[in-house]
């Protein structure tokens, strides 16, 4: 039982990261009906942005590790990635918005390949060690269940960001406009909503969340490299589909489910099956409930 709770704790921490990435997928899909394949790579850029920021601030050499410094690094990398998201949307996705969805998908794959190879060229292909912006400590939750303060930070930061996002979407004018664009883009445009600007904001927020995930991963698994975004990106998308794509709470639940089930597989079956479990769950869910756990079934119009 102790083993189970230990894997559960690890899974929740890891799942929060999936959830953060999945939010970006689900928001972009909600507004554009586009699988933003480059999203996992934005998360990678977020990790590297945090790495370089922490280095520039001299963490571990000039300055002491502290939560304040960590917050600066986190917000900085979120800002950089928000900018990156806006650029990607403006330069790559906007020109193909009126083309077929397949064209947009291939463009997204192109952007993904670009970010990966750009990363290899600029950051180097070898893994980098993420500086310790918060001094590591181990905390005993219960008899034999150990978590690090990093894992707790991951969960707390994720919860704060998700609550903030939910409030933003539910309570603000811009949030309302985002929901309107997701509901029906042309109708929203006719109601005077600046659709282009809302889409830009959606990309900025989604990319900032991915950057936060990148920072948090750097904190817990301090080895970062330019191809680190591929698998988490795909799995976060699966998490978004699992929860019901387009649904914000669905992405959170999907991400957590994904993280927990992965760690249970690692703990009880074999770590080699870790990458398969995500897809097994996905297929099972889609065959039983094609719209995902929290997704709405859309009736097909003839």
């Amino acid at each position: 039982m102790q083993e189970f709770f230990q894997q559960l704790a690890n899974g929740v921490a890891w799942g929060s990261i999936y959830a953060l990435i999945a939010l970006g997928y689900t928001m972009v899909y909600g507004t554009l009906r586009l699988i933003n394949f480059a999203h996992g790579d934005v998360y990678m850029v977020g990790a590297f942005a945090a790495y370089f920021l922490a280095r520039a601030l001299g963490v571990g050499t000039v300055t002491e590790a502290s939560p304040l410094l960590a917050a600066v690094v986190l917000l900085g990398s979120m800002a950089i990635c928000a900018l990156l998201g806006i650029l990607i949307e403006l330069l790559a996705y906007r020109p193909v918005r009126r083309s077929s969805r397949l064209t947009a998908l291939i463009t997204a794959i192109g952007v993904s390949l670009f970010l990966e190879n750009f990363g290899i060229r600029v950051f180097g292909a070898d893994p980098k060690f993420f500086p310790q912006v918060i001094a590591p400590r181990t905390i005993t939750l219960a008899e034999g269940v150990l978590v690090t303060n990093h894992q707790i930070t991951v969960v707390v930061v994720s919860i704060v960001l998700m609550v903030a996002l939910t409030l933003f979407i539910k309570r603000t004018r811009t949030g309302k406009a985002m929901r309107a664009v997701a509901f029906h883009r042309d109708a929203a445009s006719l109601m005077g909503i600046p659709v282009d600007r809302i889409i830009t904001i959606t990309f900025a927020i989604g990319s900032a969340l991915a950057a936060a995930a990148g920072f948090l991963v750097g904190l817990t698994n301090p080895k970062i490299e330019p191809l680190m975004g591929i698998m988490p990106g795909i799995k976060a998308f699966v998490a978004a589909v699992l929860g019901g794509i387009g649904s914000v709470p669905g992405a959170m639940i999907g991400g957590l489910l994904m993280g927990i089930s992965e760690y249970l597989v690692v703990g009880y079956i074999s770590s080699t099956y870790r990458d398969a479990i995500a897809f097994v769950i996905l297929i099972a869910v889609l065959l039983i409930r094609p719209a995902g756990l929290l997704g709405r079934n859309v009736a097909e119009k003839v």
């Binding site: 192109g110 952007v111 990966e116």
Partner: peptide, 15 residues
Amino acid sequence: ERLIIYSLLLIALMI
């Protein structure tokens, strides 16, 4: 740089 060029060509072609 070849894979960077490759990916940019792909995006350009799609646009």
